[in-house]
Design a protein around this nucleic acid. Structure first.
Lengths: 233, 233
DNA sequence: CAGATTTTTATGTATAGACTTATAAAGAAT
DNA sequence: ATTCTTTATAAGTCTATACATAAAAATCTG
């Protein structure tokens, strides 16, 4: 039962995982404090701390000062998704990347975009509608709004060379953003651009990014049928 | 430019982020080693290490022994999604949760399921088709295969009381899994069960989980229209 | 000069000890 | 009984030091 000589934080973490898994420590239970565990395992408290900190971060343990550490009652699994630049994703599959700007105009945005980007009623944004192609076949339909106040040189950029996404990543790095994943039904426009049937289910990513408390861009990317995001748990 | 007296790892991390953001250290650049940084910031090397380790984990830096630390050329943003138990997700929105088992049978699975779960050609699985409801309205349509070899008592469980998901989380915790997100088009069956129009785009989560190198379950969850997963970057 | 070997070096990790901070719990005051 | 104050405690963190490990760079060798 007791395990002495667990000198690396990985070993300690493994043993703690094992005990939770084997219900030695049940969901909701308090576990011994760091000092006691470090004695039991024959290592320093810092080593135990490192092991437990990571488990708390992944949601398996809950820790509070003075209160101690307990096994999470209903652990929420966390999945980490890579959000790649579309060109890299396509090139990573050994396909040829290209993209096409369909429209590019400066105008006052509709209310929902104005609200999401928290801009004034008179502010104009750059709207960029484009499509990314993999081996010359449509892959993503992109509808983007860019705030010229946070991306000042945006009007002069030639987006036929570099996609808006990449230009922004390189020049206006964001510090905060939110992202959502959902599904939509292909309308006539999407079907035409993505070369699919009207009424087909399509995967959608929507993203808003911020810098210094000001919005940079809002983008909605609609993927061609069959697209999936994949990761491990 | 130089910043002395950054004594906490958060402060060090903030300063490093700032320098990367301000292009003091450009993508692809090597940054000073830990020892030098600890001198510059006036803190211990362990503090610098803690700050940089987290940045490397989030993909902003690349570190290799002896080679040193460099700013990632094309940082891949990582989004962390919570994968909640459906009941908790619904109850968290103050809605009433319930679920209904539509079919429950033991049979040999089709080839794709057999391949994904890596089981023998004669092995039988428990197939469970159910629907989760929020305020009595259909929310998720779930098609699940369970391996009785890894979940031995599964045949005796009363899934009208506890959903298969929750029973498994409580009794057969998995140690590894993979998950994918995609979109599908509602067929007649999905439309009937989820009370939506045929041809509507629906969000889909597919998951396979493992324990001791054996598969536990494969599940495909199709969400009612309008569902979205959301997180921050 | 290619290939094997040694050296050097930056990160990775462990440790004992001290101090900080949040906070649960006990005690005091109302 | 309720509210305020104190105290004890467990996690959170920083430090100096030491050693481990991977891998680049330098050196040796045939």
């Amino acid at each position: 039962m007791s395990a002495a000589g667990l000198k690396s934080w990985q070993a300690v973490q493994g043993e703690v995982r094992r005990r939770i898994d084997a219900r030695v420590w049940k969901p909701g239970d308090m576990i011994p404090n760091e000092a006691d565990l470090s004695v039991e395992f024959g290592c320093a408290r810092a080593t135990v701390n490192r092991a437990l900190r990571e488990l708390a971060q992944s949601g398996l343990l809950e820790r509070r000062r003075k209160a101690g550490t307990r096994v999470t009652m209903h652990p929420v699994r966390k999945a980490t998704l890579d959000i790649p630049v579309i060109r890299h994703e396509i090139e990573g599959r050994q396909q040829a990347y290209s993209h096409m700007v369909l429209t590019s105009e400066r105008l006052k945005p509709p209310g929902d975009i104005r609200a999401r980007m928290q801009i004034g009623p008179e502010d104009e944004l750059l709207r960029l509608v484009s499509v990314h192609l993999a081996d010359a076949r449509p892959h993503v339909f992109e509808d983007r709004w860019i705030n010229p106040r946070t991306a000042p040189n945006i009007e002069q950029v030639d987006f036929s060379a570099l996609s808006a996404n990449e230009w922004l990543v390189l020049n206006i790095p964001f510090e905060r953003g939110d992202i959502s994943f959902s599904a939509t039904t292909a309308g006539a426009r999407e079907a035409g651009i993505l070369a699919c049937r009207e009424g087909e289910g399509l995967f959608v990513i929507e993203r808003t990014t911020w810098r210094n408390g000001e919005s940079i861009t809002v983008v909605r990317q609609t993927f061609a049928p069959g697209y999936r995001m994949h990761t491990t748990l």
